[in-house]
Design a protein around this nucleic acid. Structure first.
Lengths: 166, 166
DNA sequence: TATTGTTATACTCTATAACTATA
DNA sequence: TATAGTTATAGAGTATAACAATA
């Protein structure tokens, strides 16, 4: 067995872990997408954008949204346009920089998001229903470690601009 | 505080856990998608389909692929068509049922997939580089529990057909 | 010149429904 | 009639590159 093959054989655990992590994420995401679609006529990217705005009542600039959501600027424009057209978010002038603006939830948008967030929480709690409190806490800690590790790796690979604000 | 609000307040841990889990999955997925795209001119759904075929050298039927990948039949047809056109997989007659066929990796497809899988493993190992062996193993066990729990929840919500073979 | 955001474009993935061929 | 798979269609999300306006 050459060096490379040996190096591979030494690391099957991480691969199994990744497949399991991804499967878990996919299953729960499937549940969330279904719920958003059929109960709220919405989608996950739209929910994620509104969730960011809910965390920042003063609003976020397009560029900030782009970094937080890890997607391109053109993409943020497209999703924001939809949400503006439906009355859930609004563009507000930024004092001192006429190129930019803040995106905020409207009053209706806050109410709409709160309804979704409540349902969303139910789906999530259901998804983890078989786990005990300690398991949930252990997982959270371990995944915090994973997040740091994975972010370093992603930055090293050249995706610097997407990771500044996570 | 009413009952509903109290019920929500009692379950913030699962929500935090889900957000962290999803973020980890997204970060690593970002890394993998970048690699597949720039180093192999491919995509994650294509990789996933080929990974299934690699696990079953005798081949899988379209319907089996659909269930395993948790996507629609039309979708599997589209991706399979691409991979057939590029010579990585082939459709083989199924004895005794002229409606169906098995999808298999071609010889070239196996070689191509092995190259991708090797690189893929490197990206994954890098993503988990900061974790110790015990952390990796603990995570794997905990996520196995999550998988079962989330699958039950997804089935209860009415997505039965997608979960038979996972 | 650099930055913020939009527009135009194209591509991938995805689901649904109607359809063909076979069981 | 039911099943396996395809086709046609539509729509969401995504990135890139060119662009306008402003800093």
């Amino acid at each position: 067995m050459d060096l490379e093959s040996r190096a591979r054989a030494e690391h099957p655990d991480e691969l199994r872990l990744w497949l399991r992590l991804m499967t878990c994420a996919q299953i729960i995401e499937k549940r969330v997408r279904m719920g958003l679609r059929f109960e709220f006529d919405s989608t996950l990217p739209r929910f994620d954008l509104m969730a960011q705005l809910e965390k920042f009542p003063k609003g976020l600039k397009m560029g900030e949204l782009s970094k937080r959501l890890m997607v391109s600027g053109g993409n943020v424009t497209a999703i924001t346009d939809q949400l503006v057209a439906e009355g859930w978010v609004q563009r507000v002038d930024v004092e001192g920089d006429r190129r930019a603006w803040k995106i905020q939830l409207t009053k209706a948008g806050r109410a709409y998001f709160n309804d979704m967030a409540k349902a969303h929480e139910t789906w999530i709690v259901d998804s983890f229903a078989d786990l005990g409190t300690k398991e949930v806490q252990s997982l959270y800690k371990l995944l915090s470690h994973v997040k740091q590790s994975a972010l370093h790796s992603l930055e090293d690979s050249g995706a610097v601009n997407l990771t500044e604000h996570i």
